[in-house]
């Protein structure tokens, strides 16, 4: 009886120690890793032959098909290309400004989620949950109307604002994961030197976080470019809307949508390659 008790006691202690050891803040940890959050864009890197090959196949396939259409079927394809490409500036404008907005919102949300203040965590958490739980299109239209009704801003600004808010939540999660990927010892060393927590974030944690999350931001940029096509419902003349306006004039629906798809595909593929190159550079520079 006595024996059994001590053995049980021993086992209990052992597991207690083991469990606790796993949260020992002094445990040497591996360096920061890269955070990947993507909705499926495959970014080809040099090492991954098969992805690079399939990237090439798709990219050149799309180019060749576009060339064939333009050269051998100038009517109606030349006209369709010309019309749809008129939406390019709006698409890029919306994408670039929205991603900047999303990064700014995301940085604050990310910092808020790792804050020591409970109520700030709560606000950020609710924001993220809210955005994640509502379809992008619904949010977009809702925020667009809300902003339009209360601030009387022009459509482009309202669209950029809505996309920023929607993507800001995902960006916040990326920033949070990035901050948490930085070894705990970094914060401790900074604080032990007498820096305040906010100084430590500014000079030590965030600069390292940027490196870790840059590829993920690149991915978001690509997603944003594709999802920016949703603003066509807000009567902004982006690529998709230009295409649909052309359809309503000519009823060439299939032909036009083929061209719209090709344009998006080519841009997306170029961007994903660029992000891949960027990431390689980043790794090379340590």
């Amino acid at each position: 009886m006595d024996d059994k008790n001590t053995i049980e006691e021993k086992i209990r202690k052992e597991t207690l120690v083991r469990k606790a050891v796993s949260v020992d803040p002094n445990a040497a940890k591996a360096g920061p890793s890269t955070i990947q959050m993507t909705d499926g864009v495959l970014i080809p890197k040099k090492g991954e032959k098969h992805i690079l090959t399939s990237w090439r196949l798709t990219f050149f396939g799309a180019l060749v098909l576009s060339a064939i259409l333009i050269v051998f079927f100038p009517d109606p394809y030349r006209q369709i290309f010309r019309t749809c490409l008129r939406g390019l500036p709006v698409t890029f404008e919306v994408t670039i400004f929205s991603i900047i907005g999303a990064v700014i919102i995301g940085t604050f949300t990310g910092l808020g989620s790792v804050s020591k203040r409970r109520w700030i965590n709560m606000i950020c958490g609710v924001y993220v949950e809210l955005i994640r739980g509502i379809p992008l299109l619904v949010q977009l239209i809702f925020i667009y109307y809300a902003v339009g009704r209360f601030f009387h801003v022009e459509g482009l600004v309202a669209a950029i604002f809505s996309l920023s808010v929607c993507f800001g939540a995902y960006m916040g999660e990326i920033v949070r994961a990035g901050i948490q990927a930085i070894p705990k010892g970094q914060m401790e060393a900074a604080i032990a030197l007498g820096l305040s927590r906010s100084q430590a974030f500014r000079y030590i944690i965030l600069p390292q976080t940027v490196k870790v999350i840059l590829p993920a931001i690149g991915n978001e940029f690509i997603s944003m470019l594709k999802d920016s096509s949703l603003v066509s419902v807000l009567s902004l003349e982006d690529i998709l809307r230009c295409g649909r306006m052309y359809i309503s004039r000519t009823f060439l629906s299939l032909e036009t949508m083929l061209v719209v798809a090709l344009i998006y595909l080519i841009i997306t593929l170029v961007l994903s390659r660029l992000v891949g190159v960027l990431e390689e550079r980043l790794h090379k520079n340590g």
């Binding site: 940890k29 070894p183 401790e188 060393a189 030197l193 007498g194």
Partner: peptide, 30 residues
């Protein structure tokens, strides 16, 4: 903490800064 220095088992140097910047950061900011 300014008056009591600490050295860790895992060094915890700041990898994005040079050796010199690692040393000058706290005197400059604090």
């Amino acid at each position: 903490r300014e008056e009591v220095g600490m050295v860790f088992q895992s060094f915890n140097l700041f990898p994005h800064l040079t050796v010199l910047e690692n040393i000058t950061l706290a005197p400059m900011k604090v």
